[in-house]
Nucleic acid binder design. Structure first.
Lengths: 204, 204
DNA sequence: GTCTATAGGCAGATAGAC
DNA sequence: GTCTATCTGCCTATAGAC
């Protein structure tokens, strides 16, 4: 082991960190290998050693992001028991990303979908399907115990939540105002509460 | 006037049409002057004659889109009187865009915001501010006559609506399923209806 | 695993003829 | 207004030395 000791895969992790930040702020078509290389002070060729082409890098990015998200969802589920709290925790995952002045990685890729190579498209869709599955489960639970109320199908409601949060992120970043996301998320989730439990405050 | 007669500004309009389609599907960083030139069978240099640089083209694109949207909002307001119907009409403007298999131009630009030249950033923000202004007015009207109900401020509710619809568009395009947008929009607007008028149907 | 060098392509933009 | 030709720069990707 040399002086410049590094754990196995540490370079890969650093590359993914920088790339994730860049894609989350500028998009997949808005960053280059040179950007990542410069920030890590390595050569572009070194990047190509770890990720032969940009599509490979993109797929790895989505994969790590998706599994990290899944882990966070599991953790959120363990910390809470009722559906509304779990939905709140779901929204806070988005908030966390936004606090780093980034768009959701997959929300960004959803916008660029038409320009993405097929493997990245598939991975992006997978992210949203997993999210939908998790939300569907929570919504059904809340529907059963009466803490959540919605019209239409559970899957529709789940997609509505995902879309609304992604869109709220987009606007919050545009206006450079995190509270825009917070109040939007609040509104969206409030719309799922049974009337009895809904706050009736209205300010102008 | 020659055989290849063309009305004043027709070429400009054609350029904007093609560019708008490309940006709406692939994003501002996902299309080139060459793409537009090829589709119109003119040279790239001809494009540069009408729009000296890409930023100019982008600003023109947003300007036309914004004023067309504003006109449609005015028309929608004349066709209807009550707030819920007007909100419905607002959502249908988005649906119209989606039917052409495009993302909202400014929703797309919101995602790419970090990479945009300042004039385009400003124009994009302006689009959303105008939308918010219109929605705020309609929401206040509905709040006054009791046809619409929401917690928090009117501006928050307006932004929530915009964000939710933009996000729903993003997902609908991703899944290649327009009905995803329609049901999401329905859910969002249903959440603004007073309990008494809200449908209680729930399917799984 | 990392480097330098370079290939090969495409981007936005300009010059100048017609 | 539109063209061809060209400049310049950046991009992804590869070859081959260390």
């Amino acid at each position: 082991m040399s002086e410049s000791y590094s754990r196995k895969g540490e370079t890969v992790a650093q590359i993914l960190d920088v790339a994730e930040k860049l894609v989350g702020s500028r998009g997949f078509n808005g960053f280059s290998y040179a950007d990542v290389a410069n920030e890590l002070k390595i050569s572009r060729a070194a990047l190509h050693y770890h990720f032969a082409n940009k599509s490979d890098l993109g797929v790895a990015l989505i994969g790590r992001y998706t599994s990290r998200f899944a882990d966070a969802l599991d953790a959120a589920e363990e910390r809470s028991t009722d559906a509304p709290t779990r939905l709140q925790a779901y929204a806070e995952l988005y908030l966390e990303v936004l606090r780093n002045e980034r768009m959701c990685l997959c929300g960004m890729l959803a916008a660029e979908y038409e320009t993405l190579p097929t493997p990245m498209r598939d991975a992006t869709v997978r992210f949203f399907v997993e999210n939908q599955t998790w939300l569907t489960r929570v919504l059904l639970q809340g529907s059963d115990d009466g803490t959540v109320e919605f019209s239409g199908s559970v899957n529709e409601a789940a997609r509505m939540i995902i879309g609304s949060l992604e869109g709220a992120m987009l606007l919050a970043r545009l206006f450079g105002d995190i509270s825009t996301f917070q109040t939007s998320a609040y509104h969206v989730l409030a719309g799922l509460r049974p009337e009895a439990e809904r706050p009736s405050v209205r300010t102008r």
